[in-house]
Design a binder for these strands. Structure first.
Length: 482
RNA sequence: GGCGACAUAGCCAAGUGGUAAGGCAGAGGUCUGCAAAACCUUUACCCCCAGUUCGAAUCUGGGUGUCGCCUCCA
């Protein structure tokens, strides 16, 4: 069994084959840190984190790198507005990023290189591009000459002629750099600094790197000339990733990445969520209203390449779904002791294989979740049978295997459930005898049609964490809410 | 204008040639004042029209609609 992935470069699903047998090099284009992260960032970070986790589950050792763009006009603008430095702004939002991701349950990448820490590599790349005839200096800037790179457009499926037709009348008018370029679609590798802006010394004078070059430099420095997965939001395909390919491959003559994977956009009200449209919700605002696991479930229930529409209704539905899954995950903690489970780890291979079979197909987490839900629902059912009838339908060790497999697979997807401590403590208040006494008192009240009293007793027990279940024949069962 | 993707139930969503997973919501039942849990049952002309095939949600062609990229974007 092997993993297949949809490669943006070939526009089809391909069997995945790593460069090294059991190691994977993976790079994700991160954020420009000039503001709080929004839900779109959440989707990107979450989905690729889960992909990394799945690859680890499949036995690969993954080196996962995600960058921060901390040199950029937007950061500079923000610094000016707030009368501070670019560095201060980016530090602040990098810290906020880590907070948000921790709250979302997104695990850390292996390293977070920043543009400001990668200047040597960047300058070296620009220099090499210049030496090889792919770059030219112009008034203190340095530009990449796209016409010298025959493969330009191979990722996004564009031809230079097409770009010209579509963009004519727009690029030339609005682009202040147009006069310095030999060709409209050449892009900046290095920009001469303006007065008061942060700058670094270079062969071409004081300046700062362009946006795309940092990723080429960081990938090369951290992961090598060719990597397995290069991932990011689909809005980065053009021009960002196209330009990365042009920069890196012109220098090395080797593919930058074997597989280019892109996640779909987050939409709100049918429209793309973006900074420029101003229709974004920050992760902070979202997590004030919904549980992180609900957000995770919502994101993982759609295939990563499809656009998703964030609505309160959808998040509410996901919250309910998460509660179902959580109940299944709590099964062992609630009933394991009662079922005399030992500590042995024992997986249900059939479930795990079914999960793998589905998810191996281009990271179909939605299909994988269906497998988990079926197991969770069965455990919930068995839990109820146990509470109400004192036995289970399935053999205890079978249930243990199912539960352990569920917990493990859920963990791969980033879900974990913990018993609420408060409920546990409140349970210690009443003895079984006291509860039985109250129940018989309630039964008498019921017989006397004194329903107000009956409900009062129900509520009193409820508040102590005791659930009553009225069954046929006037029998009332009860169990603790742990 | 160019490039690309998508269209499956009330909502969300998997499924890429063998007769429609799963989640949420709804209805009915086990059921008995209220309440809760669980289980069972139930809810799909797979956007339209042609074609290929024994067989199509799935492949091909043509429509229609929605969205993304082409400017900073995750």
């Amino acid at each position: 069994m092997s993993i297949t992935v949809y490669n943006t470069l070939s526009r089809q699903k391909e069997a995945f084959s790593p460069i090294e047998t059991d190691k994977i090099r993976m790079y994700c284009c991160g954020m420009t840190v000039y503001d709080y992260c929004h839900i779109g960032h959440a989707r990107t970070c979450l989905i690729w984190d889960v992909v990394r986790s799945y690859l680890q589950w499949r036995g690969y050792q993954v080196n996962y790198i995600q960058n921060f763009t901390d040199i950029d006009d937007k950061i500079l603008n923000r610094a000016r507005q707030e009368n501070t430095t670019m560095e201060a702004v980016s530090e602040r939002f990098i810290a906020a990023y880590f907070e948000d991701m921790a709250n979302l349950g997104v695990k850390k990448a292996d390293a977070y290189p920043r543009a400001t820490h990668s200047l040597d590599g960047i300058k070296r790349l620009v220099y090499e591009l210049e030496q090889k005839g792919f770059a030219y200096p112009s008034e203190g800037d340095v530009y990449y000459s796209v016409r010298n790179f025959p493969d330009y457009g191979k990722l996004s499926g564009r031809k230079l002629e097409d770009l010209q037709v579509g963009a004519s009348g727009r690029v030339e008018v609005e682009d202040p750099e147009a006069a310095k370029k030999k060709y409209p679609f050449d892009f900046a590798l290095w920009k001469a600094s303006k007065p008061g802006e942060p700058s670094w010394e270079s062969n071409w004078g004081a300046g700062r790197p362009g946006w795309h070059i940092e990723c080429s430099a960081m990938v090369r420095e951290r992961l090598g000339e060719t990597i397995d997965f290069h991932v990011g939001g689909s809005d980065l395909i053009f021009p960002h990733h196209e330009n990365e390919i042009a920069q890196s491959e012109a220098v090395t003559g080797k593919p930058l990445a074997n597989y280019w994977l892109h996640n779909g956009m987050v939409k709100v009200g049918g429209e793309k969520m973006s900074k420029s449209l101003g229709n974004f919700t920050t992760i902070r605002d979202l997590l004030a209203k919904f549980e992180p696991e609900a957000v995770r479930l919502f994101i993982l229930q759609a295939h990563y390449r499809k656009p998703i529409d964030f609505t309160d209704e959808a998040l509410q539905a996901a919250t309910n779904g998460w509660h179902t899954l959580r109940q299944g995950l709590l099964f062992g903690q609630q009933y394991g002791a009662k079922l005399n489970w030992d500590k042995e780890l024992n997986f249900d291979k059939n479930i795990a294989l079914e999960f793998e079979k589905v998810v191996d197909e281009d990271f179909n987490f939605s299909g994988g979740l269906a497998v988990l839900f079926e197991v969770a629902k069965n455990l919930i059912k068995e839990g109820n049978i146990l509470v109400h009838q004192g036995k289970t339908e399935t053999l205890s060790n079978e249930l243990q295997k199912q539960w352990q497999t569920l917990v493990k697979l859920a963990e791969v997807l980033g879900f974990e459930a913990k018993i609420d401590q408060e409920v546990k403590i409140s349970n210690n208040g009443l003895t079984d005898e006291a509860i039985e006494t109250l129940i018989s008192r309630r039964s008498e009240a019921k017989k006397a049609k004194n329903f107000a009293e009956a409900d009062r007793i129900r509520n009193e027990l409820q508040s102590q964490g005791i659930n009553l279940i009225d069954q046929s024949g006037g029998v009332t069962k009860w169990h603790r809410n742990s």
